[in-house]
Write a protein that binds this DNA or RNA. Structure first.
Lengths: 224, 224, 224, 224
DNA sequence: AATGAATGAGCCTTCATTCAT
DNA sequence: GATGAATGAAGGCTCATTCAT
């Protein structure tokens, strides 16, 4: 509608460009000049609209996360009384898509990954605020699956096992050449689905084994 | 006795300092000035001993990797005819210790991790050369565990599951505050051992489940 | 009115300062700091306006050459059917003024000279493109003066004789103390004119002698 | 004789290497590291043997000049009562060979040339001391050729004409591609001889013309 | 609202020189 | 006598930021 590029349009273009550049190069390697050039703006635009490079990065980050959460909610639109197995499955699907699906998410996943691998001071707090609930949700589901006899450490370890299987996928994406089935520019949606299915099956079996083990341990302890 | 330390000592101090700084800040954020200051040397020392910042980084990297491999060999000193389960267990122990054990390894693990999260042009090739054999070894073990009926994709997915459980642990270390049992400056050796035991049990169960599934799939296919 | 001079003014001041410093110190000895200081700018100004020290040098060079060619065109505004003697005279006047006249040309001549004595990689090509036509023009004139019987080598040697008489004058300028009549800061225009008159007379006589010689040589050859 | 490289040998190798490097790159562009590497010595060797880079350069320069003067003496071994024409011829031959003949002189000529084009502070005085006698000798010869009626300025101009024809040849050598007959790595001795013959003939004719002119001028002045 | 010009802090590197053996 | 190690001064360049319009 606007004949001239008004502020909103300009700052949005900046945000989009920044998202791409940050995703590709990381926070430090990316330069405001690159971003502004990509956005068709002047070098001063970043500071004008976002105060500083940091400001822009935070904006990008929040935006990326919100988008990711909107498109792939961690509960997978499941009713709250669904069985834990289904909840875990939804969680894994959500995680993997959030991390791997460039097609719909732009570079959100990559931005999040980078922040995880090399935490930037500027978003450390935000990051924590955002990750904690996810962790909490996962914790609850796994606790339910492990049953009442599992120790706190068993739960934590299983959380790690599940979450890490998803997280480290981000590594592969940035070096696609190493992993044959990640070679396509956009990893196909159905491959992600297959992967998620695998992780779910793998993890449920793993959790079941840990559960059994913990029960037999308790049993042993009870004997004496 | 000499006021001026001899070359070997000086370049080694430089290497050690670089290892720490690179591990803490990453390649780009680290400055040669910081490193030299930490090593008690002049700014020109890096250039004199290693040619350039890149040269120093490569030296650090190779050193870190060699050290890690020496202290925690991937075969865990197992005879080559050991059962696959034991081999997998050794591999997981080796991986996790390599990544998590600061106490004995300096920052080797962290350096390796960083390179994985944000590949540096300078060591890309070396990195690939070094990772490929590890991947190959893992692949073989898992193939053996899954049995002859498993599809190639099943194998790959299981490799990912196992390796990722270990890899992503590196994330935790850099942000210790998030993970309660990683809070100590040096993660205790026995915690790593427990974790490794967990990952082994979890993974063996996961692999077994995938194996069973693949066999039943084959069966189904045979029926028609 | 503006405290901050607008870009054109600033980059021009930079160009002027660079011209002086490059002329005085040569490419390598000149530092961007010196140039910027002289231009009243920040060290980063060179990079901002010209990309690099090289870029600035090339700009200076092109500017110097264009200016020199504009003020002292090699044809001396002579009609194209003027006699060869007059053309040679015009060429010599143009050459000498271009090289010696600081008053009107700034340091153009000196910059050109330096480039001739110690070719810089960055302007080698430009230099060649610029010198070749001049050489061609001189060649034609001398060929005309020498007549049809002169050998190609005779022509080349005479071109060298004429051109070198002019070129090497640049040496004197940089070490004014050695040559009494070059001592003034600006060599007086009339001294240059006298010098040019001398070189013209000297060279025409030299060429005539070579012509005569070549004709008698041919004659001798014809006899047998 | 010496089994190990004694000091003399070492410092001489250094001098030779320096001569080549200075000739090729010029004073500033040449680095002591390069020179020492070429001489097979340690970086500290230059300072040890010659005190500093400047010291080495001065040594090289003196050596080059002495060598050049020894091989091509400006009097061409002519008796002091030889006719002026022959003296001029000998001078021109000496000059041109000194400048152009790499074969016998190593890089002496080039070193001298460089110093002329871009005077180095360190040898300015030496240079002057060395050039002044040459200038004086040329001056005398030309004065004799021009006869008693020539003005001082006529003499100076003719000196310039003669000397410059020789000097500027040095330019050609560094950019051989521009001058077809300079293309060979070592300019052939007979080409230099031909060139010298040409310059002699050309100059004698030029001088004769100036002489005639000056006489007629005097005549004209006498009339009034 | 938006921008081209300009800045200053900081980084990596080069290089002649000095030190201690 | 000769050398490998080490240094400090300086140079060119990058980049986020600010200025004035």
């Amino acid at each position: 509608m606007a004949i001239r590029k008004d502020g909103i349009e300009s700052s949005e273009k900046l945000l989009k460009a920044a998202m791409e550049v940050f995703a590709e190069k990381g926070y430090r390697k990316a330069t405001v000049a690159q971003i502004c050039h990509k956005a068709g703006s002047n070098v001063a635009a970043v500071n004008y609209h976002y105060g500083s490079k940091d400001g822009l990065y935070i904006a990008v980050w929040k935006n990326a996360f919100e988008e990711a959460m909107k498109v792939y909610p961690p509960d997978g639109s499941l009713p709250s009384d669904a069985p834990a197995e289904q909840k875990l499955r939804a969680l894994i699907f959500s995680n993997l898509h959030r991390i791997l699906d460039d097609g719909r998410l732009g570079c959100s996943g990559q931005i999040l990954l980078r922040e995880m691998a090399e935490p930037t001071e500027v978003v450390r707090q935000i990051f924590h605020d955002v990750i904690a609930p996810l962790r909490e949700r996962t914790h609850k589901i796994i606790r339910e699956l492990l049953g009442p006899k599992a120790s706190e450490q068993d739960i934590r370890f299983c959380v790690l096992s599940v979450v890490n299987q998803c997280l480290a996928m981000g590594f592969r994406k940035s070096r696609k050449k190493l992993s044959p089935f990640f070679r396509a520019d956009d990893i196909k949606k159905d491959v992600i689905d297959q992967l998620a299915e695998h992780v779910t099956a793998f993890s449920l079996a793993g959790i079941a084994a840990i559960k059994k083990e913990s029960e037999s341990k308790k049993l042993q302890l009870n004997r004496y």
